[in-house]
Computed example of a mutant assay.
Amino acid sequence: MFAADHGSRVRRLYKLIFRVHRALPPELRIMGDNYARDEFKRHKKCNPPEAKIFLTEWTDYAITLAKQTKPLQQVKKKKVGEYLDPQLLDHMSDEQLAQLYELHKAATEPSDETDVKPTESK
């Protein structure tokens, strides 16, 4: 009974995250979808205490992002996301820190569209 209920909650959260991502700009949506998909796959067989933490953090993420992507909030703040508490870094594994760094690089590198120069007509 518990396993079936747990699986149902995980699926609902997974679908919710992808629904919330629809409000993001296309580049962020692709990156967010890929990241969420990968993280859920990685934690598919984690132990119950890790699963509880994992689901709590992803639920908080979905709620925060849903609030930030409401049209009225976007007009007021024009901001999506929030800064990571530096104290959380002390609790991350080397693998998590490397993954966070890769995510930071992907989010801050200029898109290819801005690098394209208009062609001159002769």
Rank of each mutant, 00 (worst) to 15 (best):
A3S: 11
M1F: 02
M92W: 05
K15Q: 08
E27W: 06
Y61I: 08
E50D: 09
E95S: 12
I17H: 02
A66D: 08
S93V: 13
H6A: 15
L103Y: 11
H91E: 10
Q68M: 15
I30R: 14
G81Q: 14
G7P: 02
A98N: 12
I30V: 07
Y35K: 02
L84G: 08
Y14G: 01
R29A: 11
H21F: 13
P86G: 04
E57I: 04
E50K: 12
A4Y: 07
D5V: 09
R37V: 07
L84A: 13
L55E: 12
Q87Y: 03
D5M: 15
V80K: 01
F54M: 09
A3M: 12
I30E: 09
Y14K: 07
L16A: 08
P25R: 12
E95W: 06
F54T: 03
L72M: 11
H43V: 02
K45M: 04
L28Q: 11
L28Y: 07
L103K: 10
T69H: 01
H6W: 11
L13G: 07
L28V: 01
E57F: 07
Q96K: 11
N34K: 07
C46Q: 03
R12Q: 10
M1Y: 04
T69E: 03
H6V: 10
L65Y: 02
T64Y: 05
I30P: 00
I17L: 15
K77Y: 15
K78N: 12
R22Y: 08
R19W: 04
A23C: 04
D33F: 01
L100R: 09
S8W: 01
E27H: 06
P71V: 06
L72K: 12
Y35L: 08
E50P: 00
P26N: 07
K45G: 03
Q74K: 13
K67L: 15
N34A: 13
D94R: 10
K77T: 14
A51Q: 13
K78D: 07
K44M: 09
M1W: 04
Q68H: 08
P49W: 03
R22L: 13
V10C: 03
T59V: 00
I53P: 00
H21S: 09
D85G: 04
F18Q: 14
Q87M: 12
F40R: 08
Y35G: 02
N47Q: 12
P48E: 08
K15F: 01
L100D: 06
M1V: 04
E102W: 05
M92H: 03
A66Q: 10
T64P: 03
H21E: 14
K45L: 09
A62D: 06
L84V: 13
S8T: 05
L55P: 00
I17P: 02
P71T: 05
H6L: 15
Y35N: 05
L89S: 06
G81F: 11
K105P: 00
Q68P: 00
L97H: 06
K105E: 13
A4Q: 11
Y83Q: 07
S93W: 06
R42Y: 01
R9V: 01
F18I: 04
D60E: 14
R22D: 15
N34C: 02
K105F: 09
L88S: 04
M1T: 04
R37G: 01
L13P: 00
G7D: 15
K70F: 03
R9F: 05
N47C: 12
N34P: 00
D60Q: 14
I63L: 14
K41L: 08
T56S: 11
D85T: 01
G32S: 13
K76L: 15
A51E: 15
P26G: 04
